[in-house]
């Protein structure tokens, strides 16, 4: 225990030093923030909001894969739960504040995440992936049959409502800043979690679970908390997405969606904070471009090919490769 805590302290200390020394990272975050504030005046806000929702979804997924080493193949279930609950509540109770609707959707995903997490962490590695996939498929069939989801049709025309009775979210720009605020808050939370002592234990589990157990950590409890956190954030992404598109449909719950979020994370960089952002931006952008081109029908084939290429020769993802390049350059400079 003591050893790991020392390591933690050292890790935290070097991280602290690093953040003071590498102000470029701070500058990068600030630049991205400003870019996020200005973006809706340059690009179509709904498109940007879609990217933000999926970036949040991928970041939530990455929290589990990148920082605990658990590959969930069922994150669509949480996205869809958040989307459906929020959509149902806002459609049924038109006066309801969108904030409450989103909170309810997130809470639903948290509850589901607790149940699924408790089951899934009983198996490891490849079995974990299969269990989460099967559980998510079970939820898919539930959503097909449950009356409140309207089955194949999905929920349509979900009202966006007004924020605190002041801001009309029907305005795309107003909604954009609301979605942006949600995203930034979630991103800061994830960053905080990853750099916290709790996050260090998660990384220890990722690197060597038996060792973490022998050091006295209840790794199952840590894994479960991480799973629930990830599920809740995925639900938040789904809930926000419902507000943006004013619909919730079965596509959110299908295994394709679980695969897509894996691709976004893999392409951007597993285990990096900015990777999921880059990955989701690229995948959404690519889908958008392809949909308008003659290759529109080949989206799934192209995504599959990117998957194969990523696994074969690009496993650190774009952000991961950039980091490696920067580190190499630093080493060279020091020599």
């Amino acid at each position: 225990m003591a050893v790991l805590e020392q390591e933690q302290e050292r890790g935290a200390a070097s991280a602290g030093k690093a953040s003071r020394r590498i102000t470029p990272l701070g500058a990068l975050y600030l630049g991205l923030f400003v870019l996020g504030l200005l973006a809706p005046w340059v690009a179509y806000p709904v498109f940007l909001m879609k990217i933000l929702c999926f970036a949040l979804f991928a970041s939530a997924f990455n929290l589990l894969l990148g920082f605990v080493g658990l590959l969930s193949f069922g994150h669509a279930a949480f996205l869809a739960t958040g989307a459906y609950i929020t959509g149902f509540l806002l459609a049924e109770y038109p006066g309801l504040s969108p904030v409450l609707g989103i909170m309810a959707g997130t809470l639903g995903a948290v509850v589901l995440g607790t149940l699924f997490g408790a089951l899934a962490i009983r198996r490891q590695g490849i079995y974990f992936a299969m269990v989460t996939l099967a559980l998510a498929q079970m939820m898919f069939f539930f959503f097909v049959q449950a009356p409140f989801t309207h089955g194949e049709d999905g929920l349509h025309g979900v009202p966006r409502g007004e924020l605190f009775g002041l801001f009309d979210l029907k305005n795309n720009h107003t909604l954009y800043y609301f979605v942006f605020a949600i995203f930034v808050a979630a991103f800061v939370l994830i960053r905080r979690v990853v750099h916290s002592p709790f996050g260090q234990v998660l990384k220890a589990i990722r690197e060597n679970e038996p060792r973490a157990i022998s050091l006295g950590y209840h790794t199952d409890a840590y894994k479960l908390v991480a799973f629930v956190l990830s599920a809740g954030l995925a639900g938040l992404a789904g809930a926000t997405k419902t507000l943006v598109f004013q619909l919730a449909s079965l596509g959110d719950a299908s295994w394709h969606m679980s695969g897509e979020v894996i691709l976004m994370t893999l392409l951007g960089g597993v285990g990096t904070l900015l990777g999921p952002l880059v990955g989701s931006g690229l995948v959404i952008g690519l889908q958008h471009q392809l949909a308008q081109s003659a290759l529109g029908d080949w989206v799934s084939v192209i995504l599959g090919a990117i998957f194969v290429i990523c696994v074969l020769s690009f496993r650190s993802g774009i952000v991961g490769e950039c980091q490696r390049w920067l580190e190499k350059r630093k080493e060279r400079d020091e020599v």
């Binding site: 695969g259 894996i262 084939v301 599959g304 090919a305 998957f307 194969v308 990523c310 696994v311 074969l312």
Partner: peptide, 9 residues
């Protein structure tokens, strides 16, 4: 993941 990509293709 690789075989998943193949399945999509």
């Amino acid at each position: 993941l690789l075989t998943f990509g193949l399945a999509l293709i």
